[in-house]
Design a protein around this nucleic acid. Structure first.
Lengths: 124, 124
DNA sequence: CTGAATCCCTGCCGATACTG
DNA sequence: CAGTATCGGCAGGGATTCAG
C-alpha cells in the first residue's frame, strides 16, 4: 500500500470532491460539514442544545458575550443546514424554541471524534 | 442513549471547554480541531497526502489555482499543528518534502466521519 | 526550488440602534 | 421576545514581486 499515483477520486476520505480539484468544492461532503460548523461561536451554540431545546433568550443569557446579530446568524445557519428545528409558539409573548433535529443529533458523534482528536495535546 | 439532561460540563461532547463558556475558547478540543482544518484549501491540501509524501512543487502542480502564499500558509499551519512533517533534502536543487505524521493519520477517521455526515443530502 | 514580503480587496464579526 | 439594519474594524486570501 505504498503511495499509488491514484488520487482520492473514488474511495478516499475526500471522495465526493472532484479528483483533481481545480478549486475547493462547496459540494464536497467535508466542506459541507465544515460549513455547518463554520464561524465563531457555532460550536458553543450547538453545544447549548445537547441538553434539550432552547429559546432565543435562553441562548442569549447563556452566552452573554454573543451579540444578537451573530446569534441570529448562527441559528439561521444551523436551521437551514437542517441541524436545528425552529418552532413558533403562537400567542403573546412571542416564543420561539429551537432544538436539534435527527440530523443534528447525528452530528454529535462527529463532534465527539473531533473532540477526541483535539484533546490529544501536541507535545511541545 | 436518548438525550440526557446533563449539560456539557464534564462528560458531553464539548467537555474541555468551560461549561458556561463566556467566550469561544481556543483551547477547547473541538476548536483546536476546527482550527487545524480552518481556511480555504486546507482539506484539499490535506487530501493530497493521503497517497503519500509530496513536495512543494508537486502540490503546486496538483492545485494550480492555489497561490504560493496560501500554500505556504497551509503547509505551515498543518506542520505546526503536528499533522505534517517537513523534511529538507540537503544539496541542490533545494528539495522539501512533506508527509503525514502519526497524528496526521489519526485525523483521517475524523475527516471520514465528517465526510459521512456531509454526504447525507438535506431533503429539499 | 521553496518559500517570504507586500498590496489590496472582500467578508466576517462586534456594537449599536431599531422593528414586528 | 425575537429578531433585522447599518456601520466600522480587522483578518483571510489572491496577485505579484522578491529572496535564500
Amino acid at each position: 500500500m505504498a503511495h499509488q499515483t491514484v488520487g482520492h477520486g473514488g474511495v478516499g476520505v475526500l471522495s465526493g470532491c472532484p479528483a483533481a480539484a481545480a478549486e475547493p468544492d462547496p459540494s464536497c461532503p467535508i466542506e459541507i460539514t465544515l460549513a455547518v460548523l463554520k464561524g465563531r461561536w457555532t460550536p458553543l451554540v450547538f453545544g447549548e442544545f445537547l441538553s434539550g431545546e432552547r429559546t432565543y433568550s435562553e441562548l442569549s443569557r447563556a452566552l452573554p458575550a454573543l451579540s444578537d446579530k451573530v446569534l441570529s446568524e448562527r441559528l439561521a445557519q444551523l436551521t437551514s443546514a437542517g441541524v436545528l428545528e425552529r418552532r413558533r409558539t403562537p400567542g403573546w409573548p412571542v416564543r420561539v424554541t429551537y432544538e436539534l433535529t435527527e440530523r443534528g443529533r447525528a452530528l454529535v458523534p462527529v463532534l465527539a471524534a473531533m473532540r477526541h482528536w483535539g484533546a490529544e495535546a501536541i507535545p511541545s
